[in-house]
């Protein structure tokens, strides 16, 4: 079965795809840090313009980014609702009306929404322009904790298998019950339990396969890439962008 939900576009050829994974990871993490630390609403116009430029440069369809952004929408709405409720219960809630959009609570919610979507777009872009093995290699080069890279690698691999198991379970349900008359919670509860048990069994077999090839707790580093002229140019642009943002911040 073929799945493309994580690195569907990482084999395209674009200026971003050709860059060194270390540079991309560093750029992404720096931008995420900037997004999170910014409290100035106007600066997000600059960030989104930059993101749009990068999205076009990546040659990955905009609809793909939008779909990914849609995935976090329920969480964003939940956080927004929670913040709105807590603001409404606070002592200065009398100013919190729909007409008073300059209220600090609205500003906070807007900032959270903008930060979340900017971060999701950035992360989607990173995983779309960098094959996962290259990303892991870059993480290792930056001395990310081994446990983090090992878990990331296993999660990446086994997400595919988990999805396969879920598809198989769904097919099994549909083949025997085109219309589910039992309580759906019970059916899906059983499916979840069965997938969990299969995962435990499978994890044991995978461990055997790893141990039989002398696995000692750490994955080997694998192949990487070298810094080229494009990386130097991208690095210079990156420094200019960061300097520009810092300048705008102080204004």
């Amino acid at each position: 079965m073929k799945h493309d939900f994580i690195d569907k576009y990482c084999h395209l050829d674009s200026p971003l795809h050709r860059l060194d994974p270390r540079g991309k990871l560093l750029f992404c993490l720096s931008l995420l840090f900037i997004f999170i630390s910014t409290d100035n609403l106007k600066l997000f116009a600059v960030y989104y313009a930059l993101l749009l430029f990068l999205v076009i440069l990546s040659r990955v369809p905009i609809s793909y980014y939008l779909k990914r952004a849609l995935l976090v929408t329920p969480f964003v709405l939940m956080i927004g609702l929670f913040m709105l409720t807590s603001a409404a219960l606070s002592p200065d809630s009398q100013n919190l009306t729909l007409k008073n959009l300059s209220h600090p609570a609205y500003l906070k919610i807007t900032l959270i929404i903008l930060k979340t979507y900017a971060s999701i777009i950035m992360l989607t872009m990173l995983t779309s322009v960098t094959p996962f093995n290259c990303l892991l290699w870059a993480m290792r080069k930056f001395k990310f904790p081994t446990v983090m890279t090992t878990i990331s690698r296993l999660v990446y691999t086994y997400t595919f298998l988990l999805v396969d198991e879920m598809h198989a379970a769904r097919r099994a349900i549909k083949s025997r019950a085109p219309v589910i008359r039992m309580p759906k919670t019970k059916v899906y509860g059983n499916v979840a339990a069965s997938i969990l048990l299969k995962s435990i069994h499978r994890s044991r077999l995978v461990y055997y396969a790893m141990v039989s090839r002398k696995f000692s707790g750490e994955f080997p580093e694998g192949e990487g890439s070298r810094f080229g002229r494009a990386d130097v140019i991208a690095g210079t642009c990156f420094i200019l962008i960061i300097s520009g943002v810092c300048f705008l911040w102080k204004m």
Partner: peptide, 8 residues
């Protein structure tokens, strides 16, 4: 599937 667990 139990033996192949690396990205490539």
């Amino acid at each position: 599937d139990n033996q192949l667990f690396c990205p490539t």
